[in-house]
Design a binder for these strands. Structure first.
Lengths: 368, 368
DNA sequence: TTGAAAGCGCTAACAG
DNA sequence: CTGTTAGCGCTTTCAA
């Protein structure tokens, strides 16, 4: 269609005014009287005029666009992204999302593209938080001077020079154990499964790359997470017995397996509470126990861990959660402040969000 | 940082050449001898020069960017999006993704923004396939002349003037029933749950908008889908008995409930096969039956429906699936062809992809 | 092999 | 109220 090439000049000719008048009129400048504006607007409409943002941005020196770089499509990003949109809408910013599919080369190229397209700020949930490629990319981003807010927290040894918003694994663990111990539990089990791409565990150094096999989903092991649980429990005088570490290869419905597994064990050997390292696992476990006639939490407590906050999740699951929606809000607000120079870039600001305990009736005091 | 404002002029001054020379050198024009180019490149690097795509695109009249408008983040888009990326990478296109969160106003604004930013093509999975807003947006898009490929198929009464790539519900149903009947099943049940946002059902007219409540996930009912199943069964001389229509409010783990429900019914009243209208449901049902000691498929067959192709899904589930990866490939290839004027826009081309039967051992002949 | 100059479509002073 | 005139940063002939 010719429409794509219509410019304000064409509109000006059609409406018989100067093209700068068109520019003003189209943006609703009050200096143009309504009669003229009317004429211009109808002319623009008739010609199918579509303003050219490239020219506009180039001229104004501002794109009013924010780039969001994510690893992958998964439910953990749903809430933050909605927040980004809402906040951006209000601040009249556009959002452009890139997914790198866990490919650091693509991640880097995308970020560079953001900079070249003159986005005014970037929110970045990195594929990895360490390694040379990461450091290099960080360095590049820093050199461009584009405001960046990271989604997530750096690992202790790495010092990322950008503001960060996220919740720390340590804090979540503390909350989980303190909560269960507060209820009186001393015999606690752990249900775990391979972490799907996108969880904290998948960004750990143990990540097993499966290059070439990119036509399948990517799974990773999380020995590090289990080790941290062990450690945290020991620090509290508890032990994680080998038989109380339930693992399954099936993240989604493995909970049912674990339920059966538990069910077949003499009850006096049951842990009084189980932490499920994933919401699917926790919910499936609850459902499975329920289906087998085991009362939760009367006979055993189930506590979800690393659960996206979703009040409507079924079945309900008491869980240590992260308010990912709020995380989104904070990150975006922070970025906008950075853009507006309301806060400095320089001392990096690490916003460690406290985890949140969502009670939904699957935890109670241990049975006597 | 000052970096953001470095232009080829600065680089030119630094390297002591004309700025047009810099332009040529930076794009590797062979007319510039390597010595000069070297000098220019180091100068550019030293100054932290970042080329301005806005200016570049404006000048060239081409952005080499494709816009992708999606409804929401959910796993059904993972595969297509990865395909988009891969293909775009090869064709040296950038991809910019927008999510409208099922909000048609936002969808429209995003599409307009794409056009104003002069994307060269758009892939669009609409929030709705009917209604005035949709028609209006379609009309607008058409007027801009930007090449569009729709992800999904129009409903029969609506005539969308863009090429479409998707798989039809009718075809999938046919495949499911023919498959089960071919195995000998005559007594078939249906397990169903509210459709989460993003499935076919959620784009049906019955969609219950919950404006304002945007801090929770959106669920929809799918009476239309059930009606179609009924109809298809009747056309084959089967009937869907009321007691064989299993519904649960819990899409993820409701399958376990249904398993228990079935389990409590005398076996001679069981259907010999159950179609699960969602992969979660199907997998949870299988797992639940298994946990209860019911052998699948020896005692009952479970067939998944509307299942994203995921060979690694656990537990395995024989299913009528759509090759969403291939769908992505086709859509993107089509779009690139449109952009290159290799095929015409005009007679809309509806690429109805055949569904795919993925056998995973949960279906077999009915027990005698 | 390099420089000069005319745009790309629009914004934003500044004049009238 | 409307027109004039520089740019914004880069590409791309066309000369030198």
């Amino acid at each position: 269609m010719a429409a794509k090439k219509t410019t304000i000049h064409d509109v000006a000719r059609e409406a018989d005014v100067d093209y700068s008048t068109v520019s003003l009129a189209l943006r609703g400048d009050r200096r143009i009287r309504s009669y003229t504006r009317q004429r211009i607007q109808t002319a623009a409409h008739r010609l199918g005029y579509v303003p050219n943002q490239l020219a506009r941005s180039l001229s104004r020196g501002a794109t009013h666009t924010i780039g969001v770089m994510l690893t992958d499509i998964h439910r953990g990003f749903t809430d933050p992204l909605e927040e980004f949109q809402d906040i951006a809408d209000r601040a009249r910013y556009m959002i452009s999302v890139h997914f790198c599919s866990w490919d650091q080369a693509r991640e880097r190229a995308g970020l560079r593209h953001f900079c070249e397209s003159r986005v005014e700020g970037v929110i970045w949930a990195p594929a990895q938080w360490y390694g040379e490629t990461f450091a290099q990319t960080v360095e590049n981003m820093k050199a461009t001077g584009v405001p960046v807010v990271m989604l997530g927290l750096q690992h202790p040894p790495y010092d990322v020079p950008f503001h960060q918003v996220g919740t720390s694994l340590r804090d979540r663990l503390t909350m989980a154990l303190d909560y269960l111990m507060g209820l009186g539990h001393r015999h606690i089990g752990l249900a775990s499964a391979p972490a799907p791409a996108g969880t904290e565990a998948s960004t750990a150094p143990e990540r097993q790359a499966d290059h070439g096999a990119h036509h399948s989903r990517r799974y990773f092991s999380q020995p590090e997470g289990i080790a941290m649980v062990r450690q945290a429990m020991q620090a509290r005088g508890l032990a994680l017995a080998e038989q109380d570490l339930f693992t399954t290869a099936d993240n989604d419905y493995g909970g049912v397996e674990i339920a059966v597994h538990l069910f077949r064990r003499p009850r006096e050997h049951w842990p009084t509470a189980v932490i499920a390292a994933d919401d699917r696992l926790g919910r499936a476990l609850t459902k499975g126990l329920w289906a087998l006639g085991v009362k939760v939490p009367e006979e055993i407590s189930v506590l979800g861990f690393d659960v996206p906050p979703d009040e409507t999740g079924q079945p309900p699951l008491t869980a240590v959660s992260q308010d990912s929606r709020r995380m989104g809000t904070l990150a975006m607000d922070l970025l906008l402040q950075l853009i507006k120079h309301q806060i400095p870039h320089q001392p990096q600001k690490i916003t460690a969000m406290p985890p949140r305990l969502v009670e939904a009736g699957t935890c109670g005091p241990p049975r006597k």
